[in-house]
C-alpha cells in the first residue's frame, strides 16, 4: 500500500469513490437549500461547510477524470449474507429496545449475533457453554449499568401494562 511505486499511478479510476462524491454533491446542495429558514448567524457555518463539501467532492471527481490515481479495490472477501444479517439483527435489537425492554431485546440480539457469528458445528456442549457465557455477560453488564451505575435502562412499554 504505502510502497506503491510512483509510476504505477496510471491505475484505474476510483469509480466507487466518484459515485460517493456525486452523492455528496447532492447532499451539499440540499444542505445549502435547507439553510434558507435559518438566521443569518446560524446559516453562515452550514453554508460554508456545505459549499466546501460540494467543492471538494467535485474536485475529487475532476481529479479522477483527469489523472486516475492508484486505488485498491475494496476487498470483497467474506460472507455478505452474514454481514447483512448482522445489520438486520442489530437494527431489530435497537428498534425493539423501547418496546420489549432492555433485557429481552439484549437476549434476543445476543442470540441472533451468536448465530450470525458462529462458524463451528453446534454440539450440545457448545450450546450449553454459549448459553452460560451469554447469560453471565448479559447479567454482568446489566448489573454494572442498572445497579452499580444507576443507568435507567428501558423497561419496555409492553411490559408496563399501559
Amino acid at each position: 500500500m504505502s510502497n506503491t511505486p510512483v509510476n504505477a499511478r496510471a491505475g484505474r479510476r476510483d469509480v466507487l469513490g466518484m459515485g460517493y462524491a456525486a452523492v455528496f454533491v447532492v447532499i451539499g446542495g440540499l444542505a445549502l437549500y435547507f439553510t434558507e429558514g435559518m438566521s443569518t448567524l446560524g446559516a453562515v457555518f452550514p453554508q460554508t461547510i456545505a459549499t466546501a463539501l460540494v467543492i471538494f467532492s467535485l474536485a475529487y471527481i475532476v481529479q479522477n477524470l483527469i489523472s486516475p490515481g492508484s486505488v485498491n479495490p475494496p476487498s470483497g472477501d467474506g460472507s455478505w449474507v452474514r454481514r447483512g444479517l448482522l445489520v438486520v439483527v442489530m437494527l431489530g435489537w435497537v428498534l425493539s429496545l423501547t418496546w420489549i425492554g432492555f433485557i429481552a431485546a439484549g437476549v434476543l440480539g445476543f442470540v441472533g449475533m451468536i448465530l450470525v457469528g458462529n462458524y463451528d458445528g453446534w454440539t450440545p456442549r457448545r450450546v450449553l457453554a454459549y448459553a452460560l457465557v451469554s447469560a453471565a455477560i448479559i447479567g454482568g453488564f446489566y448489573t454494572l449499568f442498572a445497579v452499580v451505575l444507576n443507568v435507567p435502562l428501558p423497561p419496555g412499554r409492553w411490559f408496563q401494562g399501559m
Partner: peptide, 13 residues
C-alpha cells in the same frame, strides 16, 4: 461467536 455479540452488546448499552 461470543466476541461479536459481546462487542455489539457493549455498543448498544
Amino acid at each position: 461467536a461470543i466476541l461479536a455479540p459481546t462487542v455489539a452488546f457493549m455498543t448498544v448499552i
